[in-house]
Computed example of a mutant assay.
Amino acid sequence: MSQNEQALAKTALYDLHVELGAKMVPFAGYEMPVQYPLGVKKEHNHTREQAGLFDVSHMGQVLLHGEGAAAALEKLVPVDIIDLPAGKQRYALFTNDAGGIMDDLMVSNLGDKLMVVVNAACKEQDIAHMRANLGEGVEIEVLEDRSLLALQGPKAVDALARLQPSVTDMVFMDFQTVEINGIDCYIGRAGYTGEDGFEISVPSSQAAELAKALLEQPEVEAIGLGARDSLRLEAGLCLYGNDIDTTTTPYEASLLWAISKNRRLEGEREGGFPGAETVLAQIQSKKADRKRVGLLGQGRAPVREGTELVNAQGETIGTVTSGTFGPTAGAPVAMGYVAFEYAAIDTEVFAVVRGKQLPMTVAKTPFVPQRYYRG
């Protein structure tokens, strides 16, 4: 049986998605809801205005046990893990020996263990990478029996606080073990929409029960992958496999903020991650062949992934890696890679769509202000 013919996996919420009238599509080896009867645009707007519930159970969830887990993991990522406080989480990148990005992930410190959440399409590769490199003192526990829900939007906290009032005390990037409706959950105040919200790891046997309890709240609607994509793109957030991959370094990907300062400076913990020599050389010289940029369209036509970017002379200078019409931005929004000399804000470039050159402007991201709750 070829890869394409293999049976798609189903999350614990599959039956609920079908019951809610979701249109199911293949995504990263799973059958996932792309939209519900509300439709992508209304789902997008509802999340921006109230609260949306997303099934992200296709992601990989892993616990790392052992005293040396933080030090071992820090050798694989360009961020500070040793000093990550208990009850906090951090965005990280797995890099390869050339400095390319193997995956992006979230690392959370539960005090006696670390939790790592990785992308669905990279799950097997990432777990193998950790098994091969973390050393014998670290026990890797893959959580096959847990689901992941994301509750996102300005009213997410109101909805969740009815079920567990303590969540109102959490701020952006807090992470803790919490009981919600009598269900033991790991919960982080973070997300992938640019809005305030929570990501909740729940035992798969109780995932539908928790999802239904959340959907009963007046602010909450079920939201599919379609709106998840337009929300994260407006928020300037990368999608692994589109905007970042093994051929892009963190510097080229404009992810300098995802490299902890103590891993960039001269000192005992400078570098120390795979491909550091390449990445630190790019940071120091402030130069690379290409750079990831935000792109704002001047018309109404969306510019999709894979579209060629040219200069005023019609010479190819880059490619769009993600693009859509941004319902909140009210304009076509995209991100892509351009030759370094075209990466400055306000530079005009052109997207080649059906033989026409559509003007686009290199723009700051996020396209829509991020509204994380920092207290």
Rank of each mutant, 00 (worst) to 15 (best):
N4H: 14
E5A: 15
T11L: 05
L16D: 05
E19V: 01
G21I: 01
A22M: 02
M24V: 07
V25N: 04
F27C: 01
F27E: 03
P33V: 07
P37R: 04
G39T: 00
G39F: 00
K41A: 09
E43Y: 03
N45C: 12
R48I: 14
Q50M: 13
A51K: 10
F54K: 04
F54E: 11
G60W: 09
L63D: 13
L63G: 02
L64A: 02
G66N: 08
E67R: 15
A70V: 08
L73K: 09
V79N: 14
I82T: 15
I82P: 10
P85Y: 15
R90P: 13
R90Q: 15
T95C: 09
A98F: 12
G99S: 10
G99V: 05
I101T: 00
V107L: 11
K113C: 12
L114K: 09
V118S: 04
A120N: 06
C122G: 03
Q125Y: 13
I127F: 02
A128F: 06
N133D: 06
I140P: 00
D145W: 06
L148Y: 03
Q152D: 04
P154M: 08
A161G: 05
A161P: 01
A161K: 05
R162C: 06
S166Y: 00
V167S: 02
M170A: 09
T177G: 06
E179P: 00
I187H: 00
G191M: 03
Y192P: 03
F198P: 03
E199A: 09
I200W: 04
P203K: 06
P203T: 10
S204F: 05
A207R: 03
A208D: 11
E209K: 15
L210V: 08
A211W: 06
K212Y: 01
K212D: 02
P218I: 14
E219Y: 08
E219C: 10
E219G: 10
G224N: 03
G224C: 03
L225S: 00
A227V: 01
R232P: 06
N242A: 11
D245N: 10
A253I: 01
K261L: 15
R264A: 14
E266F: 15
G271R: 07
G272M: 08
G272I: 07
F273K: 08
E277L: 14
A281Y: 12
Q284I: 11
S285Q: 13
S285D: 12
K286P: 08
K287I: 03
K287D: 05
D289W: 04
G297T: 05
R300Q: 15
A301C: 09
A301L: 14
P302A: 09
T307S: 11
V310G: 12
G314Y: 13
E315Q: 15
G318P: 04
S322C: 01
T324D: 13
A331Q: 14
Y337D: 01
A339C: 04
Y342S: 11
A343H: 03
A343L: 02
R354D: 13
G355H: 05
P359V: 12
T361C: 07
T361P: 07
G375V: 07
